[in-house]
């Protein structure tokens, strides 16, 4: 897969979310989702598990489940993942 991806962005996270968990009416392509909560975006804990498993695979990292549950917005998750990627490299 894209092991070459060096950084997660809100846009690429949005694409992964829609791919692995679908999308309801809470947002569309024009919505700025960065600071909306995953709850507001219509995603439950299983959807977030799918999201984190996909990020783990694509970026070669491991996201702690408890950490994941404390990351309530796309922006927070992006910052956390990119922080891990910076540590790795």
């Amino acid at each position: 897969m894209s092991a070459s991806a060096s950084e997660l962005t809100v846009d690429s996270l949005r694409a992964i979310l829609v791919e692995v968990a679908g999308q309801d009416e809470s947002f569309d392509a024009d919505t700025d989702i960065a600071t909306m909560t995953f709850d507001e975006l219509g995603y439950d804990s299983l959807a977030l598990m799918e999201l984190s498993a996909t990020i783990e695979q694509r970026f070669g990292i491991t996201i702690d489940e408890e950490e994941l549950s404390s990351l309530s917005t796309p922006e927070a998750l992006v910052l956390f993942v990119n922080g891990m990627l910076a540590e790795v490299s």
Partner: peptide, 8 residues
Amino acid sequence: IPSRLLPQ
């Protein structure tokens, strides 16, 4: 089927 239900 709603998009949100397709993957599951």
